[in-house]
């Protein structure tokens, strides 16, 4: 098949919606056609940046959620005319109950997941970038002052002299409409990000595994520290501890 015939299917390919018959044909073509492979890469990159920029862009306020819950709870059930007519009303009541009962837990869980996913995206995007950091330096005394005047808070970067970690630099990031710092470190061939943000209650203080990455978060003096990397959890914890010690 020719490029012109296959190009329209590249969208379905990057969206994971190719038919079973079409998939092997497309994959074989992409292996041999640099133009179509570049087009697929470009579409895939567009999809990734769109998702990163649009997901959780607007978060509902807690007040709105409460207001909505109240209006759902206040909605009077329809009076059944006959016994069998009560069935839809029961279904409506069950739905309202489901909405209210699941709301707090579901929203918090969903927001927490989105917050962690957002930071993971920032970390991955940094690694993929040709210019991963804005201030390139292995010297903490150069990197820390670079953030002065850019952030509404200050933080310490630990001395790494005797540790296996190496500082690569840092950059300014925006998370949930607030500026924060992202520091990039290496550990062997692994790269780890340390995000320092004004306290974000959405990100629980915990160590978790998300999509193959270790994510460790904790709070100190009103700041939330989040370490993300594909290194093993013990190494991520070691970097976390260095920051915890430096923050004291």
């Amino acid at each position: 098949m020719t490029c012109d015939q296959l190009r329209p299917s590249l969208h379905a390919y990057i969206d994971g919606s190719c038919s079973a018959e079409e998939l092997p044909i497309l994959e074989a073509h992409l292996r041999t056609c640099p133009q179509c492979a570049a087009e697929a890469l470009s579409l895939s990159e567009l999809k990734r940046i769109t998702r990163t920029a649009s997901s959780a862009r607007f978060a509902p306020s807690p007040q709105f959620r409460v207001r909505l819950e109240e209006s759902i709870a206040a909605k009077p059930p329809r009076k059944p005319l006959f016994n069998f007519a009560g069935l839809p009303t029961l279904a409506t009541a069950a739905f309202a109950l489901l909405l209210i009962a699941s709301s707090a837990m579901w929203v918090r869980h969903s927001e927490r997941e989105q917050a962690v996913a957002e930071l993971l995206d920032l970390h991955v995007a940094t690694l993929a970038s040709a210019n991963p950091v804005d201030i390139v330096s292995t010297d903490r005394h150069t990197v820390k002052p670079w953030f002065q005047g850019k952030l509404p808070f200050a933080f310490n970067i630990p001395e790494l002299g005797n540790s296996p970690f190496k500082l690569l630099g840092g950059k300014l990031v925006y998370f949930r409409h607030s500026p924060g710092a992202q520091l990039l470190f290496t550990l062997g061939k692994h790269q780890l990000s340390v995000f320092i943000l004004k306290d974000q209650p959405l990100i629980a203080a915990a160590s978790t595994r998300e999509k193959g990455f270790t994510v460790e978060a904790w709070s100190r003096s009103g700041l939330r520290y989040v370490v993300i990397g594909d290194a093993n959890p013990a190494d991520v914890h070691a970097l976390s501890q260095l920051f915890e010690s430096a923050a004291q």
Binding site: S54, A56, R57, F58, R65, L68, S71, L99, S103, V107
Partner: peptide, 27 residues
Amino acid sequence: MPHFASLYNFACWLAQDRAVAEDLVQE
């Protein structure tokens, strides 16, 4: 509330106005 946060986000992207988005989600 199933899909509450993502519905609100989608409504904001459609309406490009938070107050309108709240009305839409509520309705």
